[in-house]
Simulated scan of single mutants.
Amino acid sequence: MLTEDGKHLYVSHDEYRRLIERLALSVHESGWKFDTVLCLARGGMRPGDVLSRIFDVPLAIMSTSSYREQAGKVQGHLDIARYITTPRGEIAGRVLLVDDLADSGKTLEAVIRMLRNDYPPITELRSAVIWTKGVSQFQPDYSVEHLPSSPWIHQPFEIYDTLRPETLAARLQDSLLP
């Protein structure tokens, strides 16, 4: 649900699942066939996992990080992992790069540039995200929702960003009470 001021988008678990399914259908309807899903951890892990399962292709993982400031709400220095985890030794062929969103677009641009320069076995590369913000300088090949007002997206699993084991234990204990 988008707030009235357009500054926040709240997404439920069910809506998140439906958006990933819509992304999968969009890729399918394009007719493009790919060999591997490469997800950007952390945001792309959930959609990447689902797309990997739906299309029955291997899931590769590349870790990136830039949102660490102010509880993950301010973009800082972009770190890109030097290695890709893949069940097939080396990533190659046609690759679908998956993330949750194109915010500024800087992460996707940097990763694509690195993949094209450092991974010659990749013969074709396309990108897929759930959301593309209006401020993004990058336009993915596949995107479910364009968000002109560039709201902060509150994803359903953000509760875990601040939940610590002690709090979890107390919460679970409280849920067992009659």
Rank of each mutant, 00 (worst) to 15 (best):
A92S: 15
L147I: 04
D118N: 06
K33C: 02
S150T: 01
S143H: 14
G93W: 06
K7S: 07
S66L: 00
G31L: 02
D141G: 14
R18T: 01
I112H: 06
V74D: 10
G44T: 13
H8F: 04
K33W: 03
P165I: 08
I159K: 02
T167N: 13
L101H: 03
L108C: 04
D49I: 02
L115A: 04
D174W: 13
F157P: 06
Q75K: 11
M45L: 15
R17K: 13
R113L: 13
S127H: 06
G44Q: 10
E29C: 09
S52E: 05
L25R: 12
K73C: 06
L163H: 03
H146S: 13
E109H: 10
L9T: 02
F55A: 12
G31R: 00
T64D: 14
D14M: 08
G93M: 01
T85P: 01
F138V: 08
S66R: 13
L51F: 05
A128V: 04
P140C: 06
T107G: 13
T162I: 07
A41R: 14
L25A: 10
S30I: 00
N117R: 12
K33S: 04
P58Q: 00
R113V: 14
E4Q: 10
D99L: 05
V11M: 02
V57P: 11
S52N: 11
D174M: 11
L172C: 07
L101E: 15
V111N: 04
P165E: 11
V95G: 13
I112L: 11
T64G: 07
P58N: 04
V50C: 07
I122A: 10
D14S: 09
T167Y: 12
D161S: 15
L177I: 15
I80S: 02
R171D: 06
D14W: 08
E158Q: 08
L97N: 06
Q75Y: 00
K7M: 09
